[in-house]
Amino acid sequence: MNQNTIQKIGFGFLSFSVIATISFLFIIIFFIAARGIRVISWEFLTAGPRDGMTAGGVAPAIVGTFYLTLGAIIFALPLGIACAIYLCEYSPKGAVVNIIRLSINNLAGVPSVVFGLFGLAVFVKFFNFGASILSGSLSLGILVLPLIISATQEALLAIPHSIREASMALGATKWQTIKKIVLPAAVPGILTGTILSIGRVAGETAPILFTAAAFYLKGYPKSVFSEVMALPYHIYALMTEGVYPEKQTAIAYGCSFILLVLVLLVSGLAIFIRQRQRSYYHG
């Protein structure tokens, strides 16, 4: 075969790959939106389930997902930022730092269900928090910690060394420099990372299976020690534990649609902010 033909076939395959990959996204969005949008109504968004989960709405699950996500971010954000500050600003290079870096990388690779087991053994049983918002949030928080750390690290590394020097040369201490110069400049990057983490946490199911989630609850959670309903778990439960598959699948479509819209909006926002930030730096 002649070189040009080979090249054409090769490039054809590459174009096919990218088109196929992107079309998956649109196929998934299309099917879920087409069937999900039908069940969305004011009642669906604001009321609790009725009639053995075959009617009514999913408001408690939306609220539960909100609480779990909020809890996870409250826990992981300060810790992740602190960890990234240590790694980028304080740490002397050496074995200790390598160990921390390695453990962050590996924590990022731990399967999500393992975080659920850890949460079960430590938060639910050992600390006796029970299956609760608190246990679920902490498990999700640990899962998302590596993501926040690496986003923050990236944001800190993007800040030129020269402005740290300028601050130190004016007699500022290291902490003053970090607090007043480095962190404010890194805020957009950290924000992007945080928003992406929110999207990730909101959609995670496995870590809350045994630490927080309930199939059906009357009313809304009362404290951090209450069990909650959550959107992703609700989808799973409707599809696998239901007694009336016909009606429940329709509700699951509705839940999936809401979750998909939430997550896509959130990650779209993060990507948009980052894009703008880039063009700002490049003048």
Binding site: R200, G203, P232, M239, A252
Partner: peptide, 26 residues
């Protein structure tokens, strides 16, 4: 590139439960 990279990132951000649901229902 400016379009494809964000789209792929969005595909990565779709929660696994949605993939699972899609696989089961469709």
């Amino acid at each position: 590139k400016a379009i494809l990279k964000p789209l792929i990132e969005i595909l990565a951000s779709v929660p696994s439960i949605i993939y699972g649901f899609f696989a089961m229902a469709i």
